[in-house]
């Protein structure tokens, strides 16, 4: 499955990653080589094999629906780039 620059552009957009024109061609080369290597998978017959998501086939554990966390907003916001009155500041989204 050949990789085109439009694929890299789309992935960069979905991943919210700014990629300059100069960088894009480099990523096309690198990612093409990686996907060429990955494409070896296609030669393997996996008919009837179930996908494995967890190495021990475990399923998600459930717990009682109880409040277990205490409010630590101030502690957690100490490492934020910009906060005001307990709110995270970002550029204006709504005019």
């Amino acid at each position: 499955m050949a990789l085109e620059e439009s694929h890299v552009r789309r992935a960069a957009h979905l991943a919210r990653l700014a990629v300059s024109d100069d960088q894009a061609s480099g990523f096309v080369d690198d990612l093409s080589r990686i996907l060429d290597m990955v494409d070896q998978l296609q030669s393997l017959d996996t008919e009837g094999v179930a996908p494995l998501a967890h190495p021990l086939d475990a399923t998600q554990r459930l717990r009682a629906d109880e409040v277990t966390e205490i409010n630590q907003r101030d502690a957690f916001q100490r490492c934020a780039p910009a906060v005001e009155n307990g709110l995270y500041l970002v550029p204006r989204v709504v005019e």
């Binding site: 990789l3 694929h7 890299v8 789309r10 992935a11 960069a12 979905l14 991943a15 919210r16 990653l17 700014a18 990629v19 990523f27 690198d30 990612l31 990686i34 996907l35």
Partner: peptide, 18 residues
């Protein structure tokens, strides 16, 4: 994200997203 991540991390994010 472009400034904070290095090239190898970007490659893996792009591969994974793709």
């Amino acid at each position: 994200r472009a400034e904070g991540f290095g090239d190898e991390v970007k490659r893996r994010i792009l591969i994974g997203t793709h």
